[in-house]
Amino acid sequence: MPLTEQPVLSVKNLTVHYGDGCPLCAAHLEKNRCSACGTVWAANDICLDVFPGEILGIVGESGSGKSTLMQSIYFDVEPTEGQAYLSDYYKGEKNIWMASSAEKRTIKNNIMGMVYQNPILGLRMDYSAAANIAEKIIAAGSRNAGQMTERAKELLTAVEILTSRMSEAPKNFSGGMQQRVQISKALANNPSLLLLDEVTTGLDLSVQAKVLDLIRKIIAEFGISVLLVSHDLAVIRMLADRTIVMLDGKIIESGLTDQILEDPQHAYTQQLVHSLL
């Protein structure tokens, strides 16, 4: 991948800590918690780039800061420090974390799509699948109901949900279907970046395979860049071009996925890859 290309998403020095921090923090970290002042460093000086059409995987054990990273990018968590740039927001010249709340909403609607591990966070469970997709389109400014319905049909077909069920509420759907509705909702306004947070965790193996297949198909079809968080190396192996390994809020290793899986350098990564086999 030519490095001169402008990244779709660029995160610089993201730090999220809970607590005020103290001068002793750097030397007294017990995992990600300072034993002197008790501050938790959920994300510590994270830098990463996602390039166009690329799938960047993030692995790490629970508590390693994967979700904090993801939630910061999607404005669910307010970062303590750091900058993030999107190529579709002022051509990557303005820090998205400094945007006004109305601008942040526009970014969430039009530039990014998020798929949560728990579909309750991403969907309105009591509204129909079609209305869930329409919400995104309405937020982008459309007021044409016919066009919304057409788009909903198109997207639900892409995620293999029968359009005859589009007027049903996701609460009546199976877990795998809910996840697929969430994916179609995230894609409603053709975002340039898709955030996938543990999308297959909690689904049974056959459904997992199906959702993963579908994600691969959609990524190819829509030509979208993806940031993929998972603690499951099988998912990372199947989807990610490049992978970042996180531990205790820090990035400890990054590189091509094959390279990480075949020749892990860090002791933790070695252990992780080993436990997979």
């Binding site: 509204y127 129909s128 209305a131 329409a134 919400e135 937020a139 919304m148 319905t149 007027s167």
Partner: peptide
């Protein structure tokens, strides 16, 4: 209150759309 301040009215339109779909 925030929704009014920011003119974030998508959810109320959603309510109308849901009625149309159903």
């Amino acid at each position: 209150k925030k929704m009014h301040a920011e003119k974030d009215y998508a959810p109320i339109w959603l309510q109308l759309y849901e009625s149309l779909i159903k």
